[in-house]
């Protein structure tokens, strides 16, 4: 057994290099069930690369990524293709919001249920009763999620032209359509104002409880991370620095050095 009882995702000696540059180097950490886990590090530390390795947008050179999937089997995500990852219960958002501008908010959220559809092209084209029923079920589910996130009234509006905060919520809503076990948020606070960031912290905790999942977040905004994360892992230059609670991390000299630099630390 690669994973202990309440362990959800275990990254083991993960390494990837681009050209000669080691973007991630022998990194290991573990995320538990229902945990909010933060991955922090200064600019260029390789946080997003770790994300892309977990979701298979990049193929790591070395290392394993074990995950307890929806069927409660332990699998190695490295063996999968990008589009297969969501079926295991891992779903992500993007740093620069990747939504379909020409579709309504509701339709964008429905894309998140893509893998759950059982009917094929032909039954959908002919609007067979089973296809109509299926569509109605997921529509209701999407509306439910939009209500929870407080953007239900906008469901029929186009994504194009919506404020940034709303777009971030739509992306969040889309991830929950697949009933994930692990949601990966890539800099969710980027581009949000203070009020929106506060709200986001609340939303993240709420979704963990409502949807019963773990959250992995990569974030620049320290307040958000310290405020919301159960466990934080700090990395620099692709290497592991420290892991612990918000307090541990704040006190850790290695982390301080990485963020502030040596000289400033001296004064």
């Amino acid at each position: 057994m690669m994973l202990e009882n309440n362990e959800l995702l275990k990254i083991e000696a993960l390494s990837i290099q681009f050209g000669g540059l080691k973007a991630v180097d022998q990194l290991s950490f573990t995320i538990h069930e229902k945990e909010i886990f933060g991955l922090i590090g200064p600019n260029g530390a390789g946080k997003t690369t770790v994300f892309n390795c977990i979701t298979q947008f990049y193929k790591p050179n070395h290392g394993n990524i074990y995950f307890r999937n929806i069927k409660d089997e332990v699998i190695n995500l490295v063996d999968l293709k990008v589009h297969q990852v969501i079926r295991q219960g891992v779903v992500r958002t993007f740093q620069n919001v990747e939504l379909i501008r020409e579709l309504s908010i509701l339709d964008n959220v429905l894309i998140g249920a893509h893998i759950d559809y059982k009917t094929g092209v032909i039954s959908q084209a002919l609007r067979l009763p089973k296809a109509v029923k299926e569509e109605a079920i997921y529509k209701a589910k999407a509306e439910e999620i939009l209500k929870k996130l407080g953007i239900y009234e906008r469901k029929d509006m186009l994504v194009f032209g919506q404020p940034y905060g709303i777009l971030k919520k739509v992306e969040l809503a889309r991830t929950f359509m697949s009933d994930p076990k692990l949601v990966i948020l890539d800099e969710p606070a980027a581009g949000l104002n203070d009020v929106e960031t506060l709200q986001l912290a609340k939303t993240i905790r709420q979704i963990r409880d409502d949807f019963n999942c773990s959250v992995l977040l990569v974030e620049h905004d320290m307040r958000l991370v310290m405020d919301v994360c159960d466990t934080i892992c700090a990395i620099n230059f692709g290497k592991f620095l420290a892991q612990g609670t918000a307090k541990d991390i704040q006190k850790n000299p290695l982390v301080q050095e990485a963020y502030l630099g040596k000289e400033e630390h001296d004064e």
């Binding site: 979701t55 947008f57 990008v82 589009h83 297969q84 990852v85 969501i86 079926r87 779903v91 992500r92 993007f94 990747e98 939504l99 379909i100 501008r101 020409e102 579709l103 339709d107 429905l110 894309i111 998140g112 249920a113 893509h114 893998i115 559809y117 009917t119 092209v121 959908q124 084209a125 002919l126 609007r127 296809a131 569509e135 889309r174 697949s178």
Partner: peptide, 28 residues
């Protein structure tokens, strides 16, 4: 019918954002 259902949304996703599409399980 097709374009206003799951298949059409998958097409739209493929056009609008290849990364979002594959992250949502659309097998391109």
């Amino acid at each position: 019918n097709m374009m206003n259902g799951q298949v059409g949304r998958a097409f739209n996703a493929m056009r609008g954002s290849e990364s979002a599409a594959s992250a949502m399980g659309v097998y391109s």
